[in-house]
Every structure is written in C-alpha cells, then in structure tokens.
C-alpha cells in the first residue's frame, strides 16, 4: 500500500534530508541537468530509498529507471505520449500518471497506471499552469471514476489543507514547496508524516501467523 504522504524533490540530497523524518514514498523529479548527472542522481536516490525501506518514484527518465533497476516511475502527459509503455511494463516498472482533464484521464486509464495524479488542486507557484485549479469537488469526481486506483492530489497543497483533501476522496497527498520552501523543511516533513501516518496501517505492529 502506498503511503499517503508523497513529497516531490529534485535531488538525492533532498531525499537524504527527508528520509530521517519518516517519509516512505518520494518522487525524484530532476529537471534541467546534464544526462550524466541524472544517472548519478537516480542511482544515489535509489540507494538511499532502498536502505530506508522507502518507495522511490523516478519522474520522466524511464529508460534510466529501467537501466538502474528502479521499480516505479511517474510520467506526465507529454512524457506518456513519447514513452515506450510496453518496454516499461516488460521491465516490471510501476507507473504513475498526471492528469488535468477528462481527455488526459482517459489516456491515463488506458495504460492501467498504479496511481493517477490530479492537479493542480490549488493555485501553485511552481509551474506555469495550463489548467485552472481543480478544486476539492473534482477530487471526489476523479475518485469515483478511477475506483480502486490510488488517487494522488497535487498542486498548492499545504499541511493545513491536507485533511480536507483526504476527506474529498484523495488517497495520497503530494507536495513540493510546502516542504522545500519551508523555513525548516525537516520539521515540516515530520509534521506531515505525523499527520498522515494514522491514515495507514502502522508498519511493524502485530504478529502475522508466526
């Protein structure tokens, strides 16, 4: 089961900083770096996540992810159009896909993704937004459409808004600047982990049939 708190960062260094706060699900979204660096960054992130028992998702660089034996990638709609989905599936990679409207949702469902992201829920400082904020009502609508596929909400989300977003139907909440631009990103991350951890079965509690 995927952890309900899903930060997105742009370096293995960030992942190293946040792992001690207890994150278990994290995306590495590296942009505007030379090819050789990307490979190193993904390898470093993978090693860190593996050691900590966290699930790493690699944004966009699916071929590098396959080469480095990662097991989960995220594709935006543009990346989706150009990626070799059969190769990705043959390599056993799990796949998350971004969506903003009905057309994109239909295209995402075609590839049977392991999660679907909906955004931006709120206005965001981060990207040039081609789409207007989705709002909470859209979350419920999306969840009804995708059923058991986990729904990731993203875009302008802050810790204070998280409760409402889960109540609206999101399974997972994704953040960038609420952590990376916080005065104390580690503390903010710990607060997020504490707030969201109760939504998932605690790890390490209770015996199986031993």
């Amino acid at each position: 089961m995927l952890d309900p708190f899903y930060p997105i960062v742009d370096s293995a260094g960030w992942i190293a900083r946040l792992l001690p706060c207890g994150i278990r699900f994290v995306q590495l979204r590296v942009k505007d770096r030379p090819a050789a660096e990307i490979h190193e960054e993904i390898a470093a992130a993978k090693a860190l996540a593996m050691l900590a028992g966290a699930q790493l998702v690699v944004n966009d660089y699916w071929q590098e992810a396959i080469d480095l034996r990662c097991d989960f990638i995220h594709l935006g709609q543009d990346d989706l159009a150009h990626a070799d989905i059969p190769a990705i599936r043959r390599a056993g990679l799990r796949l998350g896909v971004s969506t903003h409207d009905e057309g994109e949702l239909a295209r995402a469902l075609e590839v049977q993704p392991d999660y679907i992201a909906l955004g931006p829920i709120y206005p965001t400082t981060l990207k040039e937004m081609a789409f207007a904020p989705q709002g909470l009502a859209r979350i419920g609508e999306w969840k009804r459409r995708i059923g058991a596929i986990p729904l990731v909400a993203i875009g302008g989300i802050t810790l204070e808004r998280a409760g409402a977003i889960f109540d609206a139907g999101a399974d997972i909440v994704s953040v960038v600047t609420d952590v990376t631009r916080a005065d104390d990103p580690e503390a903010r991350t710990c607060a997020w982990v504490e707030a969201t951890r109760s939504r998932k079965t605690p790890r390490g509690e209770g015996s199986a049939h031993v």
């Binding site: 996540a49 790890r203 390490g204 015996s207 199986a208 031993v210």
Partner: peptide
C-alpha cells in the same frame, strides 16, 4: 520467524 518478519517489514522493497 519474528526476526524474519521484522526484516521483511524493515526492507519492504528489497
């Protein structure tokens, strides 16, 4: 088995 279970939980992706 208890230790094996702990190992499984500690490294869910290995």
């Amino acid at each position: 088995p208890f230790a094996l279970q702990a190992l499984r939980r500690r490294f869910p992706h290995v």
